[in-house]
Each structure stands twice: as C-alpha cells, then as structure tokens.
Amino acid sequence: MSDTPKQDNLFASPLGNVPRFAFDEAVVDVFPDMIQRSVPGYQTIINLCGELAARYVQPNSNCYDLGCSLGASSLAIAQQVNQPGVSIVAVDNSAAMLSRCASVLEQGQTTAKIELVEADICDIEISNASLVVMNFTLQFIAIEKRQALVEKIYAGLNPGGCLVISEKLLFEPESLNQLLSELHHQFKSAQGYSDLEISQKRDSLENFLLPETLETHINRIKACGFNSASPWFQCFNFASLVAIK
C-alpha cells in the first residue's frame, strides 16, 4: 500500500441519482484522505484516544475499537498502552475495510495484540473492557438500537473503565445548526472539495448518517449508569465525548 493516500474524488463528477453511501472498496481506497478532509479535528481525536489509553487501560483487560475502519484508533491505543496482558479488539462490518486494516496494522509501529473481527457491533460481546472507542460509528447505527448498544458497553466495562464516542452532532435551534453546517462546508471547501462534491456526498449520506444532539448523547450515556459524561473536544458540528464508569 502506498504511503501517500489516494485523493478522494468519488463525488467530483455529476452522478445523477447519487447512490447511498457505503463503506465499500471505492471508499476504502480513499478513506484516509476522505476523513482527514471531511472531519475537522479527526487526527486530534485519534491522538487523544491514545492519551486516554495510557491513563485508563488496565492490566489484563480488553480494549474495543468499534467501527474500526482502517484501525487508526486501534494503533493510537496500541502505541500508548503500557500495561501487560492487554488485548485490542477492532470490529467492523465492512470486509473491505478490515482487509485494508490488516495491511495498515502490519505497517504500524506496535507489538500489541490487535484482533480484527468482522461483525455488526450490535451483535458482539463486550467483556473485561477498560476502554471502548466508537469514533464516528454510532451515527451509522439505527437510532432505535443505540440505547441497547451503549447499555451493553456499560455492562462490559470494568469499574473505572472509559468510553469514547465521537460523532457529528445536530444542534438546536435550526439557526445554530445551519451556522455550524455552513462552517463545516467552508472547512471542506478549504480542503479542496468543490460545491458539487460537498452536495453529492451530503445527498449520499442522507438517511444513512443520522446525527443527534449533544444532550441526547449525554442523557443516553448517563441513563446507562455512567458516573460522568462530557464533551472533551469539539470543532464545528463534530465532537468527542468521554464517559467514565
């Protein structure tokens, strides 16, 4: 695999009926470029997950990277974990993502044990966990399944364990949501995306990426029993939350 990521031009030409977004081979091929140019603060969030791993990962416990894509969070965790007997479980339902992820991890500077699992994160078991990370994953899960998923994570976390949820957010009132959406649009324009690309990708993600308000996320997390939950990073309409059991 080339060290230089391929440029994302999937939506650069008029597509007519824009297909629904999918984490297929075409997206995998350009994913590093796509997410860096689409999500403000992405690399900062990934790096901070490593910092949390150094603080919260317990000896002989499991870390879960749910919706791992190409393993960026798993690598950040692996590079910062300094406890013995730690296993990292990286889960994704995209075979194309996991195939490329395996290649990425082979090149990563880590000796930590990382297990790749192809599965729906709603179906896997969470156990003996000291850190669970969902970076821009929950937004693709059906809203009616989100409560049960967070409850399962809470049940599988050890006392003192940490949950990270990073998401695109919805804001109220609509005027504030519009402002932050426009600032995000400007961010993507500054990264070289055309208005056509931004518009077509937005259409592709409609009814697939389903954002919620920060209040909804925090209320759900606390309802599951977490002692604390708070945003620890935000840029425009993207934020990362941390919760401690």
Rank of each mutant, 00 (worst) to 15 (best):
M1D: 05
P5N: 01
Q7P: 10
D8L: 06
D8P: 03
P14F: 12
L15M: 15
P19N: 10
R20W: 08
R20H: 13
F21L: 10
A22C: 13
A22Y: 08
D24F: 05
E25Y: 03
A26D: 14
V27F: 12
F31S: 05
M34C: 06
Q36R: 14
R37T: 15
R37N: 15
V39L: 12
V39E: 00
V39H: 00
P40N: 07
G41L: 07
T44E: 12
I45R: 01
I46N: 08
L52K: 12
A53C: 13
V57N: 11
V57W: 07
Q58W: 05
S61Q: 07
C63K: 00
Y64L: 04
Y64N: 03
D65G: 09
L66H: 05
G67P: 02
C68V: 01
S69V: 00
S74H: 05
I77W: 08
Q79N: 15
P84M: 09
V86F: 10
S87M: 12
S87V: 11
S87Y: 04
D92R: 01
S94Y: 03
L98I: 05
A102S: 09
A102E: 06
S103E: 11
L105G: 02
Q107E: 09
Q107D: 10
I114N: 00
E115W: 00
L116C: 01
E118K: 13
E118R: 12
A119Q: 13
D120E: 10
D120F: 04
D123M: 09
D123R: 12
I126S: 04
N128W: 09
N128E: 08
A129R: 03
S130C: 11
S130T: 09
L131C: 07
V132L: 08
V133A: 11
M134N: 06
N135G: 12
T137I: 05
L138Y: 02
E144S: 15
E144D: 15
K145F: 05
K145D: 13
Q147W: 05
L149E: 01
L149A: 04
V150Y: 04
N158A: 10
P159N: 13
C162A: 15
S166R: 05
L170Q: 11
E172F: 03
P173C: 04
S175L: 04
L176M: 07
N177M: 01
L179I: 12
L179C: 06
L179H: 07
S181V: 01
L183S: 00
H184K: 08
S189Y: 07
S189P: 04
Y193S: 04
D195R: 10
D195M: 08
L196Y: 07
L196H: 10
R202E: 13
D203G: 04
E206H: 15
E206G: 00
F208P: 02
L209E: 14
L210Y: 11
P211W: 02
E212D: 09
E212A: 09
E212Y: 02
E215L: 04
H217I: 02
N219I: 08
R220F: 00
F226G: 00
F226W: 06
N227D: 15
S228Q: 14
S228G: 08
S228E: 14
S228T: 15
P231G: 02
W232I: 14
F233H: 12
F236V: 02
F238C: 06
S240E: 08
V242I: 14
I244Q: 08
I244H: 14
